[in-house]
């Protein structure tokens, strides 16, 4: 195996670290010096070699540790993975999409051999070698969606299309930005987005829904979303808010650089063939402020974005209480020079 996987934690002693290569390929979400909601959708995959946009499902140095963290979360709260009965077929579609993509994009890590519905899946990083019958759930230890998403970084929502809307009828959600799958499963697009401030009035969601409904087979898209998290914690769920909430108040000018993380979601959209459902993977990337300011362009830009952001958005994105400390810290890295367009580092 060419890729080295980190031995690290996302809770407790928080040993999560980004290598210099991981920092350089971090999906920095701001393409200009200010931020407001936008639909900002691009085709996926596609991007510079080595970037997280290169493959359908990015596998990086955090893979094995993230899957271990998911296992812990699921053991404590199995309701983080739910699938309403009509969504099993979409789960098989997703399993196929991920297995085929990973075996093609990372042949040294994964392999898939198919003879009709007799499938043989090998996941070397996780030490899995499994023969099963496609479309026969009895041949897997979990339902198809749970089986494959226990082996794939990122959260997953499977959206059922009906009545001109999308319904979140299945999902695997253990690294969410503060929303509860157990509560939101079964909701339509507008309902599960209801707590987001301002966006509905701006018509963003109407446009986004219209776009998503038109996504066809073979056309895949992505967008980036972001929030802020104290400590490199994947499980910032409302379920455990009373456990991780106090950590949000531990930010000081001395520790903000290594304790405050920018949390970026690489959201992708795929139309699934047999179920006609939409798969909505939400991949989480974490980088500390210290990581980010190693790239001068990002240091300057992040300072300007967070300094000028609408207070309601700062609140929704969960960093209003730490905003001043964050902005003061980042101001050291902003010399007022102009920044180049686009999200990638400058050199």
């Amino acid at each position: 195996m060419t890729m080295q996987f980190n031995d690290e934690t996302f809770r407790g002693d928080y040993t999560y670290r980004n290598s210099p290569e991981a920092i350089r390929r971090f999906p920095f979400p701001f393409d200009q010096d200010s931020y407001m909601y936008s639909v900002n959708i691009e085709q996926h995959p596609g991007g510079p070699q080595g970037s997280p946009f290169e493959h359908m499902f990015d596998v990086d140095e955090h893979y094995v540790a993230e899957m271990r963290d998911r296992e812990i979360t699921l053991a404590e709260d199995p309701l983080r993975c739910q699938s309403l009965p009509h969504m099993e077929l979409a789960g098989w579609d997703l399993l196929e999409l991920i297995m085929v993509s990973k075996a093609r994009d990372y042949p040294d890590l994964f392999s898939l051999t198919r003879d009709g519905n007799d499938w043989h899946w090998v996941n070397k990083p996780m030490g899995i070698d499994k023969r099963f019958t496609f479309l026969d759930a009895a041949t897997l230890p979990y339902g198809p969606m749970e089986y494959i998403t226990r082996q794939t970084q990122g959260d997953f929502a499977l959206l059922h299309e009906r009545d001109g809307n999308l319904w979140m009828d299945a999902g695997m959600v253990t690294s969410q930005a503060d929303w509860s799958l157990d509560f939101d499963v079964g909701m339509n697009f507008f309902e599960w987005h209801a707590p987001v401030p301002k966006a509905r009035q701006m018509g963003v969601f109407d446009k986004a829904l219209k776009f998503l409904l038109a996504v066809g087979q073979g056309q895949h898209y992505r967008r980036l979303n972001w929030t802020m998290t104290v400590n490199p914690r994947l499980d910032t769920s409302p379920e455990n808010y009373h456990k991780w909430g106090p950590e949000k108040r531990t930010i000081t000018p001395e520790n903000v650089g290594h304790k405050q993380f920018l949390r970026v979601e690489l959201q992708t959209f795929f139309r699934l063939p047999r179920s006609n459902a939409l798969a909505f993977p939400i991949r989480c990337y974490l980088a500390s402020l210290d990581d980010l300011v190693t790239q001068p362009k990002w240091g300057r830009r992040l300072h300007r974005v967070l300094r000028d952001i609408d207070p309601d958005l700062a609140d929704y994105k969960g960093f209003a209480v730490n905003r001043e400390v964050i902005v003061n810290y980042l101001s050291q890295y902003d010399d007022g020079e102009p920044t180049s367009p686009g999200i990638f580092p400058e050199d």
Binding site: S180, F183, D184, V185, G186, M187, P238, Y241, H242, G245, P246, K248, R249, V321
Partner: peptide, 15 residues
């Protein structure tokens, strides 16, 4: 949540 038939209660003093 219509599926649960309930509103959501969230810890008020979590932080």
């Amino acid at each position: 949540s219509r599926r649960l038939g309930a509103f959501q209660g969230v810890c008020v003093d979590a932080e």
